[in-house]
Write a protein that binds this DNA or RNA. Structure first.
Lengths: 141, 141
DNA sequence: ACAACAAACGCAACAGCGTTGCAAATAATT
DNA sequence: AATTATTTGCAACGCTGTTGCGTTTGTTGT
């Protein structure tokens, strides 16, 4: 496991440090998205806030994670799957925020439907943010 | 004009104060969305930051404006059209952020397409945020 | 029009998010 | 193992948003 994490970092041309290993591990353990705050808590007070910010930025630049806009204003990050790690594929999938458990997940299977804008508007990127109750929370009831 | 603004405030059961009149006026003059910061600047340093926050919150609660999530983390607000002022209709229209001029506008005519999620997920709300180049900026070129 | 009451305002203080500069510590390279 | 390149931690800062409280302003009833 530790080897695997180090490999991912090296493959992305990042120095292997304990902080980066820990943060990457958190992302791998979790299938939802993480905000800076979540990482700070789960890392066990061991890392400086700034280090976490810089690590997230590094991961972002390398295309290892992508950011998800939220209604409350704090940026969340989620691991990019497979091919995304190479470039910035960002294949416009839907993001889901559960109002029960608060988790944010990528719905990798659900593509953002094509959208037609009025004349004169040029589309560069589309974000789709769905809120509601997620699968696990529905099963709990 | 001043009468019209006062009427809107009264219709929404809000006291008529100079701050609220000014902020509502800014929204009416502008067809794009405004962030707290924009208002602070355009109001001409005359109002306390807290007053602006509280006014925005009041407008929001009365359904006069709605909030728009952004990628940079600052909440933007836009006027609700017509019927929206009564309740919280929030008829799922698309929001557009121009990467050239930075403006955020509601595309009232463009509805958010229906989305089909995996079994177990219940949809409550859908936000669609499109970024690109807006009509006016395209014409400038 | 005026008094009594309710609401909004301004100020001060605070908490959280995110950034930058710089010296010390750690990883990569030879 | 020594040198060099990166990262880290610390301190400090700016911006966004919130809360409490005393003062000011708007609303209401007579």
């Amino acid at each position: 496991m530790d080897r695997k994490i180090e490999d991912i970092l090296k493959r992305n041309q990042l120095s292997v440090t304990s902080g980066r290993k820990k943060i990457l591990e958190l992302f791998l353990q979790q299938d939802g998205a993480l905000a800076h705050n979540d990482i700070e808590k789960r890392a066990g007070e061991k890392f400086d806030r700034v280090t976490i910010y810089r690590t997230l930025q590094a991961f972002l630049e390398k295309g290892m994670i992508h950011s998800i806009p939220t209604s409350d204003n704090s940026i969340r990050y989620a691991l990019c799957k497979d091919n995304c790690s190479e470039g910035h594929h960002h294949d416009d999938h839907v993001h889901f925020v559960c109002s029960a458990c608060g988790n944010t997940v990528c719905l990798e299977g659900v593509m953002v439907p094509p959208i037609k804008l009025p004349n004169g508007f040029v589309v560069e990127q589309v974000e789709m943010l769905v809120s509601g109750v997620c699968k696990s929370c529905n099963m709990d009831v």
